[in-house]
Amino acid sequence: MKLATAAATLLLALAPLAHAGEATPMAADPVIEARLIVISEELRCLVCQNESLAASRAELANDLREEVRKLISQGKTDAEIKEYLVARYGDFVLYRPPVKPTTWLLWFGPFVLLAGSVIGLILYLRRRTRLLAPTALSAADKAAAKALLADDGASPTRPKDAA
């Protein structure tokens, strides 16, 4: 058991080395590579859509990573690089859509829904406490109740018998 754990740990430790052989020549610069990963994790791969540009192995993702590397080495800022891709592929490439009129519903919709639900709940609770509040009986009511209780149930005026 201990041996198996050790073997598994060793395998996990070696896993990054197994991938190192596939790196492209431009990956030589670790600074560029580190920035590439940070930027491309925020970008969507258009072919696979649910994968980030950093994770995807699609052809286009490869090309785009190469493109981002080039832009980084040209000294472009992160914002400029994202702008470059948005100009070509649209806001869809961004995993964090920008806040603008067409995305207001997306950004604020959940909060509006939450606020609406809370208001609804408060209104409902208020109405309920009002309905449950004990109502004070007037003296006349009490007298009527007493008369009904005192009556032994044989009275012909009782609704049950009247029917």
Binding site: L46, V47, L60, D63, L64, R88, Y89
Partner: peptide, 13 residues
């Protein structure tokens, strides 16, 4: 050949 123009045109499929 290298797909550079394709990137400028936003080709993805």
């Amino acid at each position: 050949m290298d797909g550079r123009v394709g990137i400028d045109y936003g080709v993805y499929g």
